[in-house]
Design a protein around this nucleic acid. Sequence first.
DNA 1: GTGCCATCGGAACGCCACGTGCTCTAGTCT
DNA 2: AGACTAGAGCACGTGGCGTTCCGATGGCAC
Lengths: 207, 207
Amino acid sequence: MSVVSETCESVNVAIDHRKGPRRRGDALYAAIFEATLAELTAVGYAELKMEHVANRARASKGSLYRRWSSRAELVADAVHHTLPGCCAKPDTGCTREDILGCLRGFANLLNGPSGEAVRGLMAETIRDADLMEVVRTRFIEPGVNLFLDVLRRGAARGEVRATALTTRIASVGPDLLRQYFLVHRSPIPDQVLIEIVDEVIMPLVRL
Amino acid sequence: MSVVSETCESVNVAIDHRKGPRRRGDALYAAIFEATLAELTAVGYAELKMEHVANRARASKGSLYRRWSSRAELVADAVHHTLPGCCAKPDTGCTREDILGCLRGFANLLNGPSGEAVRGLMAETIRDADLMEVVRTRFIEPGVNLFLDVLRRGAARGEVRATALTTRIASVGPDLLRQYFLVHRSPIPDQVLIEIVDEVIMPLVRL
DNA sequence: GTGCCATCGGAACGCCACGTGCTCTAGTCT
DNA sequence: AGACTAGAGCACGTGGCGTTCCGATGGCAC
């Protein structure tokens, strides 16, 4: 994926590319994803317009609607397409550091360009049950499973009580972080992550 | 406030009331709030239209926009207007019961007609920093303070450790409940509340 | 190379809700 | 009674949505 050249403002100039080189298939997908993220970075989710994405991607609205039935689904795909490395599993040998590492990974994602996308996606998700199902499967459950793995490793080392290995407890970290992100503005201060770990999660999972 | 007569579908018939009895001041406010909640119950926040609220309230769009600059602020006011009794402070003498009582109070609110309003309000809040400030002050912080009071009483009885009397810990209950509400559909099962209390909050605050 | 055809880009369209004028009128205050 | 405020209805301009049409193009079979 090439470097995004324009990130400070939206682009809405319509140049005629009917005679230019025309992409299809994967190349077009990639261009649309890149344009979507660039627009998200530039104007945020609330102000993201399908037509602007199309113009930036040098594509047509028709090509967008042929693939995604709504803005939310486009953004969900675009974001999901860019987070292969977000689920790096920290394994420092210390449960507290692992948990903090997980939270920092999430926080970095939310503080970055994808954060604006996630924010808008959450807004749309709240209103749409089907989309909520997609988001839960793609974004939320993997996060919980990541925490559950960390807790399991901690339990194997004897740092975590066995009865703490529940979905409910593994959800606490992601839930609190997500809630903070939704209720406050980014960037999320590192101090908040440390408080979540030291005041809530560690007292909860320690022997 | 009178009983809402029509809750199953939206009303969008425009009858000329220029010659009819005309309300102003509090009576008009009350009619608009009632119509807003009725529309919320009927069609949900996402499908709520200012014009439909106006018609149901036998008011004009102008009267709405003269008072509120956006749908979100109207809904925020309407919801806030209807929750005088939501902050009843349970005092059963048992910390677990008090906490569970608080959560059940919130859950009842979210499962009722106001829940749809809160959901939509959260969606709007995510996108609007100013509105977020309003929501935090009006809805979120009072909830945290309620929990803090419960914990303080528990500490006075010797059921809660003194170091658990922090905003961070008092926020855990409301945050987890809110997160569940946003990510899942209502109604919120009582079992979820019990799990939050017994798996998370009580282990966290106990001596 | 040549023809075929799915797909592309662009443009125009109808639609719907928004938010704002404007006019007329009902209530309120002096 | 007269003046003034504020509400009701209506019409309008705006902007984004999602669709449809048309001409163009690139890949593919032959």
